[in-house]
Amino acid sequence: MSMPLSAELLDGIVLAVLKKSDAYGYALTQQIQAVISISPSTLYPVLRRLKAQGALTTYDQPYEGRNRRYYRITPVGTKLLQETETNWQTFKQQIEHFLPDAGNQAKEEKRL
């Protein structure tokens, strides 16, 4: 049972991965799927939207006789990522007030 990801969080995750390094579609999907279950059919619209916003650009590199399309984060994307990180921290703290994370759980139980 997984909780749904908001569009903003999805954008943030993609941008965060690209911030570490450029990636092509399959590699990007794999990196994300290693941690959280997501379908490439979900990721494609995200990439398209981010590109339309100017948060990332694409470039092609030849590979085994065809062109591989790489995605790269832009300064606009970096700024967007920072905003998302801030929003996430706020949101995370709000939720953890009600659903404390594992580290805080012992403390909470002692308090009660």
Partner: peptide
Amino acid sequence: AFFQDYAEDGGLTDGDAITKALG
């Protein structure tokens, strides 16, 4: 093109494999 590349990079060589991964 995006999903064709995905199938190629992912080694999904026939329709069944692609369907399993992408629907």
